[in-house]
Structure formats: structure tokens, C-alpha cells
Design a protein around this nucleic acid. Structure first.
Length: 367
DNA sequence: AATCCGGGGAA
DNA sequence: TTCCCAGGATT
């Protein structure tokens, strides 16, 4: 018991020094990112645009900086304000999101922008609870926007912060059970001044130095405080639960083309690839294989080529079949649960998620 | 507390 | 291959 008391006192005294060292390092080593303002701007008192902060944070949920950057620039160029985004047709936003994944984020993005325009006069709430109540904004994003855009002293805990903090304090409790302990440590370190920069400094450290494998402890500005480094166990933390095996599923996508147009459908709002345009398929899902039953009678060419695709919780081997006739009455398929005939030469603009974009590419090669 | 939800970059 | 990423919603 005396040992625990002594450690706690040391932590409380050292926590502000850790934050100060982190901020010093951030001032000279911060990553240049499309959604960040420059150090000069920040020194001049410029605040980040909450819209840009929010948009980047939503895009960055479970998604790497490398994958997000081009999407962020495209969205900002096309919809410079939250009002512009709120006024955009949902199908345009979903198509612009195509390829980024986790499409519920795009649906929530639209709902959030419209709620903001309707209920908040186009202004973002400037508190963590106010932000937390909006669609698509959870604990992390509410804290991040509050800290970065509004200078609120909120504890921002993402996967980087979890890793950095678990190592700094040698927290052996496996995730996600360790989350509350990690949050408490972050709150302890949180500086009254520059909470947004502190959050970003922690995330930069996790992304560039305190990496999951082979961390660069020799370059770390807080290595002197790191209990995991002292024990030589940095790379083994944080402890994560074992991951489950992904079941393998098979399915078929149907390529039905007439007069240079291919039949696309709109998927149901809920579930996999929800709300997105897609090729018709045979009902494959995470829990079962497709039924291989064509959507209409006629002559089909089964391609040898298939699309191998890996989702979060299963892998899919998607085979392709091309419709060869007889001629269809195209009008009969229009207005059929979101079905439409899309010009094949403009397939890139359809906003197909990656699985179906790959399938379309192969079908076009073999048609 | 578990589960569902994409896709790609890096080692 | 395997790992993991500025997580949120639902059950």
C-alpha cells in the first residue's frame, strides 16, 4: 500500500511535466496535415474552423491519414461550409464518400450537417456534451472537436492515445477494459492551456514515434517518464484481446448491360454498404453465402475471374456473371427499389464502394 | 460487453 | 500474410 501511495504522488507531480515536454516537441515536430492550421496562424490566435475539424475527425474514424487526405480536400473543395454540405443531395455525398468505407459515417455526416443547419443555425455546439448529442459524434469525436476547435479541456482518447498512455504508465489491463484507467491518466496530464494541441501532440506521438511495432523510443520526448520503456515492455502494450477468425463467404454479382448502360441498385440504408449504389447480387452476407439465383431468366456468362475482398468480419469471394439476353424492357426495371441504368463509360462517377468498383472493372474487361 | 460496420497502408 | 488505423451505433 505505501508503494501505491508513493507512485500516485509521483504521477500527479510529473503529469504536467509530461504534457509540457510533449507540447515542446509538438511545436517543432507537428505533422503538416490538410485540416490543421499552420503554427504561424495558431501563434497569431487563429482558431481552426470547426467544420473542418469535425469533417476530418469523422473521416479519420478507424481510417488512416493517408486514406483520408484526398477525400478531405475533395469534400472541402466541393462543400466549403456545413451549410453547403447540409444542402447537398444525399446521393452526392454518399458517392463522394465511396471507397472510404464505414458508410454509416457518411449517412450520419449528412444527418449531422442538416441538424446543425436546422437546429443550430449552422453553428457547431462548442461543448463536449452538445457535440456528443449529434449523429456520428461519439465520445472520442466530441472530445476532439471540443478541444481542437473550441479549446475545451477534454480528454481525447483515440487508439494512439490509448497506446501512448498504456505505455507511459505500464497499464497491463487488456483493452477495452483499460479504457477508464487510461482516460483518468489522460485527464491527469491534460494541461489547462492548449488542450487541443496536447491532444494532437499525443496523437502525433502515437502515429510517428510510439508506434504499435518497433517504437522509436530514442526519439521520444517523454521516454524519461515511460514506465513501459523502463521495464523494456513498450512494444507489448497495450494488451489487446485476441481477434476472431473471419468466415469465408461466396457470392455473385450480376452485370446486366444494354445499350451501353448497366443496371445498378441502391442498397438498403441499414447493413453492409448501406445506402450505396451497387451491382445487383445474390444475397450474400456476413452470415451466409449467396444463393446463385440470377435476378432474371436468360442467358448468362459465368466469368472465371472473381473479386477477393476482405471486410472487417468476413472475407468474400465474389464471382461475376454477365447477362447475354434476351433483350430486356429497360423501363420495367426503373423505379424498382432504387434501380437505375447507369452509362458504363461513366461508371467511375456512380460512387460504387470498392467491392463493386473492382467487380465492375473486371466485368467491363470481359463484356 | 459484444458485435457489426470498409478499406488500405505498412511491415 | 498480419496488423491496425484520430470509432460509433446497436443490441
Amino acid at each position: 500500500m505505501p508503494v501505491e501511495c508513493r507512485e500516485k504522488i509521483v504521477d500527479e507531480r510529473e503529469a504536467p511535466r509530461i504534457a509540457a515536454a510533449l507540447l515542446d516537441h509538438y511545436d517543432t515536430h507537428a505533422r503538416t496535415l490538410a485540416w490543421r492550421i499552420s503554427p504561424q496562424q495558431r501563434a497569431a490566435g487563429v482558431r481552426p474552423d470547426p467544420y473542418r475539424v469535425w469533417l476530418s475527425e469523422v473521416m479519420l474514424q478507424q481510417t488512416t491519414v493517408a486514406a483520408v487526405t484526398s477525400y478531405f480536400n475533395a469534400f472541402i473543395g466541393r462543400w466549403p461550409t456545413v451549410e453547403a454540405l447540409a444542402a447537398a443531395p444525399a446521393e452526392d455525398v454518399l458517392a463522394a464518400w465511396a471507397g472510404l468505407g464505414y458508410y454509416a459515417r457518411a449517412r450520419n455526416l449528412i444527418a449531422c450537417a442538416r441538424a446543425m443547419a436546422a437546429d443550430h443555425g449552422g453553428r457547431f455546439p462548442d461543448t463536449e456534451p452538445g457535440l456528443r448529442a449529434l449523429p456520428g459524434i461519439g465520445d472520442y469525436t466530441a472530445a476532439a472537436v471540443a478541444a481542437i476547435a473550441f479549446d475545451r479541456p477534454s480528454a481525447v482518447v483515440d487508439a494512439n492515445v490509448e497506446r501512448v498512455t498504456a505505455r507511459l504508465f505500464a497499464i497491463h489491463t487488456p483493452l477495452p477494459a483499460a479504457k477508464s484507467a487510461i482516460r483518468a491518466k489522460v485527464a491527469q496530464m491534460l494541461p489547462a492551456a492548449r488542450p487541443g494541441d496536447f491532444a494532437q501532440a499525443m496523437m502525433d506521438l502515437g502515429a510517428t514515434i510510439c508506434t504499435p511495432r518497433n517504437p522509436s523510443c530514442l526519439l521520444c520526448p517523454v521516454a524519461g517518464w515511460c514506465e513501459a520503456r523502463a521495464q523494456g515492455i513498450a512494444e507489448s502494450l497495450p494488451v489487446k484481446p485476441p481477434k476472431k477468425a473471419k468466415p469465408a463467404r461466396t457470392g455473385t454479382a450480376w452485370w446486366i448491360e444494354q445499350q451501353g448502360h448497366v443496371l445498378l441498385v441502391q442498397r438498403a440504408d441499414k447493413g453492409m454498404l448501406g445506402g450505396m449504389r451497387a451491382l445487383p447480387d445474390d444475397g450474400w452476407s456476413a452470415s451466409r453465402n449467396g444463393n446463385r439465383a440470377p435476378p432474371l431468366a436468360g442467358q448468362w456468362t459465368q466469368l472465371d475471374a472473381a473479386v477477393a475482398h476482405v471486410f472487417t468480419h468476413f472475407s468474400l469471394d465474389l464471382s461475376l456473371a454477365l447477362y447475354r439476353g434476351p433483350q430486356i424492357d429497360k423501363v420495367a426495371f426503373e423505379n424498382l427499389n432504387g434501380a437505375c441504368w447507369w452509362p458504363v463509360e461513366r461508371i467511375e462517377e456512380a460512387g460504387l464502394p470498392t467491392l463493386f468498383a473492382k467487380a465492375a472493372r473486371i466485368a467491363i474487361q470481359h463484356r
